[in-house]
Design a protein around this nucleic acid. Structure first.
Ligand SMILES: [Zn+2]
Ligand SMILES: [Zn+2]
Ligand SMILES: [Zn+2]
Ligand SMILES: [Zn+2]
Lengths: 251, 251
DNA sequence: TCCCGTTCAACCTGTTCA
DNA sequence: TGAACAGGTTGAACGGGA
């Protein structure tokens, strides 16, 4: 004789409505995912549901989708509570809440990831590239017919993930070029993957964008006011900061 | 008291399975379209179908989709015959038959719409354009990257509709140009719409194609053997025939 | 972790097309 | 008659607040 031993957490739980396996309590009772969805959809419906056998259907895993009338009847019989179905108003309220929370997270991330370009001093006679100029350069990129949607101020640049969103609509070839460029950037060759990510995240993104633009337009001026020539990047690990220099930018 | 009078042809016919309105006899019995499809889908299935009420379902318009078991049972009960469901082999055979018939029609149409270019004499020192040359020119059109699929012999050119099929895969701009060209062709300005259609159908199609090609490639040679220069069209209404002339075609 | 709602691909049905 | 299509339903997987 073998004792039937099972730990509580491993116990297979059975949907009280249809006998399928369930994972959690839904609307007050242990049910499967499908009966959960079913009850949410029909539990509040006033409309009378039709039964093919005058209310005599047996509900199990195979027959549960055949008769909504008998399935719903069984749901109520085994104790599912329609009061636990959220109202439209509550759903709307919760959607707003999620929206607000996301915005909070976003602003917090943006603040943590921004670079203060005002702290970067000139170096070697090369002009410091201000984020304002970057933004202006990027705004000029409409000639490539894609939406970058960059809103940068002098002291704050949106985080890399968000910038990269703008690339999703680009053609594959251009994205590939950008990725290759990020691999071959100055300062990228001798550092590990995590540091590369940090570079991308904290500043080299701008370098990547400018170089990619330059490569893509094959040295042709963006318009009469711009002439991209060359640039270089320095990563200051002590200050956890990226310095971006750009030579010969006229505007 | 009102007599209930109905002509036979206006009589509403009822699906014997579910009571929905039907239009015709299917698999031997008057049924609706949905029961027809249902029987075709399940009539030959060996697999046992499940019933939620142990075979006691009532089948009507509302409940017919709830229990396949009882619906199929009723289909057989009212006399639908599964022998009338075509086997896969018969379906394949019929597909082949349809294909062959279409080909026959096509060849017949082609014969009826062809022009005998051998009856067209030289005119004014301009070389007569043989359909063979047209075909060769069109075969050279692969540089535009579309399938024209023209197979013309000296005495026979495929009908216009079929040629036009080849244009479906073209870009809109090119199609628009072709249409505009057909409007402005020699001999098209002083005739009515029906005659224009006749012209297109019986001969000017070639003219249109050549002119469009010429326009599209902007006088650039198709390859070293071809140099399109100019051409003109004359419509002979007495003989219901189109004359196509083309100057300076080298090959 | 629990337990809501949301999403979406797969499936099914009935109508229309050929 | 079957094929193809469009529209509806289902349920597994997921996201998020508490
Ligand atoms: Zn269930
Ligand atoms: Zn029922
Ligand atoms: Zn029917
Ligand atoms: Zn049944």
């Amino acid at each position: 004789m073998v004792a039937h031993i099972m730990s509580y957490t491993n116990m297979v739980k059975i949907c009280v409505v249809c006998g399928d396996k369930g994972r959690a309590r839904n609307f007050g009772v242990f049910t499967c995912e499908s009966c959960k969805s079913f009850f949410r959809r029909y539990g509040l419906k006033e409309q009378r549901l039709i039964c093919p056998s005058n209310g005599k259907c047996d509900i199990n895993v195979m027959t549960r989708r055949m008769c909504r009338n008998c399935r719903l009847k069984k749901c109520f019989a085994v104790g599912l509570k329609k009061e636990l179905i959220r109202s439209d108003e509550e759903n709307d309220y919760r959607k707003e809440l999620i929206k607000e929370n996301k915005l909070k997270h976003k602003l917090s991330d943006e603040y943590n990831n921004c670079i203060d370009f005002s702290t970067i001093s000139d170096y070697n006679g090369i002009n410091q590239l201000e984020s304002k100029r970057i933004a202006e350069l990027l705004n000029a990129s409409v000639i490539f017919n894609y939406p970058l949607n960059i809103n940068a101020s002098i002291h704050r640049i949106k985080n890399f993930d968000e910038m990269f969103l703008g690339f999703r609509d680009l053609n594959d070839e251009f994205v590939k070029q950008i990725i290759n460029f990020s691999k071959s950037l100055n300062g990228f060759n001798n550092i590990c993957a995590d540091d590369k990510y940090a570079l991308m995240r904290y500043g080299a993104r701008d370098q990547v964008l400018i170089r990619s633009l330059k490569y893509y337009i094959k040295e042709i001026n963006v318009d009469n006011n711009y002439a991209l020539q060359s640039s270089s990047t320095q990563f200051d690990s002590n200050n956890n900061c990226i310095y971006i220099y750009c030579k010969d930018i006229y505007y």
